[in-house]
């Protein structure tokens, strides 16, 4: 079987797809890409299906050596990429030849990038998904981040759609966000139906100033530091589901934004939930970055998600030969 070999693993490089759905009633976390949009874009550029597994890298990318010639593409955070020392583009499909080394260097914007390879990464599916869940050590390669010397199996490239190599996506298509860095990124949230668990005006407080992503933040969730959110009857509830993007508030009054590797259920009051179209914006944040919350309606959330899906279909079409 064809593969690539990990020369240097990067800081936290994992195999992710759209996540392990269908088992949350048994306590199995979903996992999946932290920025699902960029993961889809990378797969679209190489002609893979939307549920193909890709590499997610965080802060520091890996160096990889390919067994055979492949079409690859990177989307998400902007890394300086080279193949055997020659610069390669982000946001466009390009070929790598057998024996060549793909290296991720300096990072300019964002936290997480996605490397898709034509044919996909084909570690075994566990409970229907190839996604790595670090806490329960499930999926990916032995449920852990990649390590030097790992061989990562690749699928049949002939199963990918044929794609054009010269297609360079625009900043807009890549959702490259100029606010990444010192400014606060804005994500839209829908208020929770149980706002009675908070004092009047708590939703205004949530929107009043940016929150800072603390250093205690990982794929499970981001601990946020900012305006204090006051409960009306205490923070604890009987455990309920914890959907992706849920903003839950423990007794400290400092919210936690639940991300890909979140637990299936939780016992803290929810104040709001990030809309699905904006999850990727949050997924590109790391410690010390800032996030602002804007309340929106269900109609606005669905319109934003539909627009995002249209954009993804347009990218798939643009990449196709």
């Amino acid at each position: 079987m064809s593969s690539f070999t990990v020369i240097r693993p990067g800081l936290q490089t994992t195999i992710q797809d759209r996540g392990r759905w269908g088992w949350q009633s048994r306590g199995v976390s979903v996992a999946g890409a932290m920025d699902p949009y960029s993961c889809r874009v990378a797969n679209a550029l190489v002609g893979n299906d939307a549920d193909a597994a890709a590499l997610e890298m965080t802060f520091v990318g890996p160096e990889l050596e390919f067994d055979d010639a492949r079409i690859v593409a990177v989307a998400g955070a902007e890394f300086a990429i080279t193949i055997d020392g020659t610069p390669a583009p982000v946001g466009a499909a390009f070929p790598v030849s057998g024996g060549s080394r793909l290296r991720f260097g300096d990072r300019a914007h964002g936290v997480r990038a996605y490397l898709a390879v034509a044919g996909g990464i084909t570690v075994p599916r566990i409970l229907g998904s190839r996604s790595t869940h670090l806490v329960s050590r499930m999926g990916g390669l032995a449920g852990r981040p990649l390590a030097a010397g790992d061989r990562v199996p690749l699928g049949d490239p002939m199963k990918a759609r044929r794609v054009r190599l010269e297609v360079q996506l625009t900043e807009v298509e890549l959702k490259r966000d100029p606010t990444i860095g010192p400014g606060a990124a804005r994500v839209r949230v829908m208020p929770d139906a149980r706002l009675d668990r908070f004092v009047d005006g708590a939703l205004d407080v949530l929107q009043s100033a940016p929150y800072t992503v603390s250093r205690l933040s990982d794929r499970m969730g981001f601990r946020l530091e900012g305006p204090h959110l006051q409960h009306s009857h205490g923070a604890d509830i009987l455990s309920e589901i914890t959907p992706l993007g849920t903003v839950q508030v423990p007794a400290s009054g400092q919210p936690i934004l639940l991300m890909a590797d979140r637990q299936t259920t939780g016992g803290y009051a929810r104040i709001a939930t990030v809309i699905s179209a904006d999850i990727g914006v949050a997924g590109q944040r790391g410690p010390d970055d800032r996030l602002s919350f804007d309340v929106c309606t269900l109609g606005e959330a669905l319109a934003a998600r539909a627009a995002q899906e249209r954009a993804l279909l347009a990218i798939e079409e643009k990449a196709r030969t």
Binding site: W21, G22, W23, Q24, S25, V30, L238, S239, E240, I241, P243, T264, T265
Partner: peptide, 14 residues
């Protein structure tokens, strides 16, 4: 429907 999760006194549907 992606996931149906009974908890103590609720059913969550993803």
């Amino acid at each position: 429907v992606l996931d149906v999760v009974p908890t103590f006194q609720t059913v969550g549907v993803h």
